[in-house]
Design a protein around this nucleic acid. Structure first.
Lengths: 343, 343
DNA sequence: ACTGGCACTCAAAATGTCCGAGTGCCAGCG
DNA sequence: CGCTGGCACTCGGACATTTTGAGTGCCAGT
């Protein structure tokens, strides 16, 4: 049965009231607070239909109704519109981010900001390497057989790695290597580099090849592997606020899931993959991570200009203020994007 | 009144049982489980004395006894001896740490290891800068008016900072600056550098002074300020295990405290200051952080050889297995120290 | 100095009672 | 035909009451 206008209105009212009060909402309370111009009895009939269709349910007979995941989904997709941020919130964002000194600091401030504004757990992926370009490569001799490789990307990120050389090496040779490597790689997207590194090894003067080999393998490691997989987290204390009712007793497993960086990446990271940066909402069971089936996730991609270098988002109970949260996540993601672009 | 041998034995038994069962322990249960060769009535008398002296207390009349902070303190100081680690635990440490690729990875693995072994919340300070020495400074031109300063320390840590120059600058000048800065600072302890930076500004050729000034201030910032203040955290999920009984409802504030990096530093960081690296135990109210009055902290310094570059530790309910926890923290701190020394 | 016995206390669990919000259904109304 | 008011019914939560048992303190006896 298609839901008519009023039934949708009833669903919206239920979601809003339940989010606000945290208590199952009954027909009387509903007509009192929202001015649907009908009687409780009518609402009850509508509720019965909504329940049949799986949008709401009763915790027990003779209790009020509570939205199901499906109900929230409908609400998010069709019944809500994103609240514009208040002026106070806009100011808070600027104040909070003002004076960030380096990339780590930006990330750190952002998660805390998000956690504070949404009063939920905030997660943010460090800018992914693969989407950024090489700005400079530095080779620093540590001893005659060791060199520290330092890479700086255009997102301002710095990676370092130790390289063990096969034998004692002249400072001049190191300088030459530095020149070669920079000439070849600076300005390139990281994702393009593996092929280039290979050609470096092939083209290099035979005298240097022995040294180039280990350097190349470390380079590859630095450029592609691992480590783009870092995630910052804040606001776990907010989990206890939502507390015992949501997450019924599974608070522990939620915390555990949040500590698994890999899990978080899956959650937040895949935002960027489709090149779509607008907030995305996953509600309860829609979530692939079993431990987070009692939570909803609102995540968005961020990055300078048109590129997306990572994701950020918020994890909270399914009973959350979706319009507000979505708006906040979007605003913060945009702001950080601008910040990165200025660099 | 001085406590005789048996009363101490009773206290030890109470602590051990309470830690094991999480329930107030009564006189009968005590004589049954430990073979003190006396009757419950006798134990009751001893308990009365222990209570008078403030080592134990009753949650309510007609309940068993529970150790107080003071009781735990006595237990830790005089009644317990550190359990040697089991072979399995030793293996776990090695297996877990094997293959760590860089400093960040070592820290990350260490906290997770600690959290897992102790089944509590683990905290670890990133190796502090002040105790380490400058290995190399690099200046990378980003544009004509911007330079990226990269510092590498002998603990393998890398710090970077952007420097805004007052005007367009020649590459040659940058090279010259790099030479000057390195000549002056490489090999010096970070704590010694502020004076040297000042002399750099004074001694530099007047042509370069204009450029040196902003560089110097950023240098100072990088060398001393902030940022040595980073902390890694793991195992917050373990808080829920101890759960509702300990931390009575203050779980939230504990989580909040744990998110405050500054607080954690105070907790863990001061270990190194006295140059003493053995585990230190702070029990309940002994703790200076108000939000952590319901917890105990076991912390130790770590570092290569004789120097201490940071602290690590464990936060848990006062009702914790002190001998085991102390042993684990000590062993892990030592292991990490050795690891750093090998570098 | 220790023990067994006894009266007493009190929190927690079990049981019972009541209340009201909420429901489903139905007959009547516009 | 859709909405409404009315009514009987359900059931969880709040509250009061009782029961139970672990634990205590104290004292007289060995």
């Amino acid at each position: 049965m298609p839901l008519d206008e009023r039934k949708l209105e009833v669903l919206r009212a239920i979601v809003e009231d339940y989010v606000a009060t945290e208590e199952p909402v009954g027909s009387r309370a509903l007509v009192e607070r929202h001015n649907l111009n009908v009687s409780p009895a009518t609402v009850r009939n509508d509720m019965a239909v909504l329940e049949e269709e799986g949008y709401i349910r009763q915790p027990h007979t003779s209790a009020g109704r509570v939205p199901t995941d499906r109900g929230y989904r409908l609400f998010v997709d069709r019944l809500s519109q994103i609240k514009p941020l208040s002026a106070a919130e806009r100011r808070a964002i600027e104040r909070f981010m003002f004076g960030a000194v380096d990339l780590d600091d930006v990330v750190y401030r952002t998660v805390r900001l998000l956690a504070q504004l949404t009063r939920q757990v905030a997660v943010m992926q460090y800018p992914s390497l693969t989407k950024s370009a090489v700005r400079h490569l530095e080779l620093v001799p540590i001893s005659t057989t060791r060199v520290m490789l330092v890479m700086i990307t255009d997102t301002g990120r710095v990676e370092q790695r130790l390289v063990e050389l096969p034998g004692p090496t002249e400072a001049d040779d190191v300088t030459e290597l530095r020149r070669l490597v920079n000439a070849k790689l600076v300005g390139e997207q990281l994702s393009e580099t593996p092929a280039l590194v290979q050609s470096l090894v092939d083209e290099v003067h035979p005298d240097l090849r022995q040294i180039m080999a280990p350097l190349a393998s470390v380079l590859l490691e630095t450029l592609v592997e691992r480590h783009e997989e870092r995630v910052a987290l804040a606001g776990t204390a907010n989990l206890t606020r939502a507390g015992l009712f949501d997450f019924q007793g599974s608070l522990r497993s939620v915390l555990e899931a949040l500590e698994e960086q890999v899990v978080l990446l899956k959650l937040i990271g895949e935002v960027g993959n489709d090149g779509y940066r607008e907030p995305r909402v996953r509600i309860g069971g829609e979530n692939e991570v079993a431990d987070l089936r009692t939570t909803s996730v609102v995540s968005a991609g961020y990055g300078p200009g048109d590129t997306i270098v990572g994701g950020m988002g918020v994890v909270g109970p399914t009973r959350m203020d979706y319009p507000g949260t979505i708006a906040t996540v979007r605003a913060v993601a945009r702001y950080v994007g601008e910040l990165l672009a200025q660099n």
